[in-house]
Amino acid sequence: MLGLILYISLMMLFLGLAVRSAFRPAGTKTSGASREEAGAPGGPEAGNTAAEPASLEGVLAAQLLRGEISHGQYQHALERLAARDDVERPLSVPRNGDSGAGT
């Protein structure tokens, strides 16, 4: 009986640690180099050593997760990005069943 209690306690401890590390705020993760050493914008007062998003969509998603923008603002920004992308790189629809494969 004592073994079962010990086993359950250890499993709960490991589960708690896994959940805690999965939901840790982005500013508490370390990558080995500080933002100052890496020459990243924001300096040490930014307090975020996690890698910066590589795309505008990634920046918006990070802002949404940090609570800096609302869901509506996020959706509106993505709609504007899609509209801009449609103007800059429009998709073309194949004509007469031509898939365009191999051309």
Rank of each mutant, 00 (worst) to 15 (best):
D98K: 13
I5G: 03
D86I: 08
L2Q: 03
G42W: 10
A38E: 13
S55K: 11
S55G: 05
V87D: 07
A22T: 00
L2F: 04
L6A: 03
R84F: 07
A77L: 07
K29M: 05
T28Q: 11
E79T: 10
L81Q: 14
M1C: 13
Q73R: 01
M11Q: 03
T30C: 08
G58R: 02
E57W: 02
I8W: 03
E52F: 12
N48Y: 12
L13P: 04
R80Q: 15
L81P: 06
A40G: 05
L10W: 06
L64C: 02
L78E: 10
A51L: 14
P53W: 02
E52V: 08
V59M: 09
L56D: 04
S55V: 13
A50G: 00
M12G: 00
N48E: 08
R35Q: 08
L65Y: 10
V19T: 11
R20C: 02
I8C: 13
A33P: 02
V59R: 09
L13A: 15
E68S: 10
G100W: 14
L15M: 05
P25I: 02
Y7W: 06
M11C: 03
S55P: 05
N48G: 01
G100A: 14
L56F: 02
A46E: 12
G100S: 12
E45T: 11
A33C: 14
V19C: 01
G32M: 02
E52R: 10
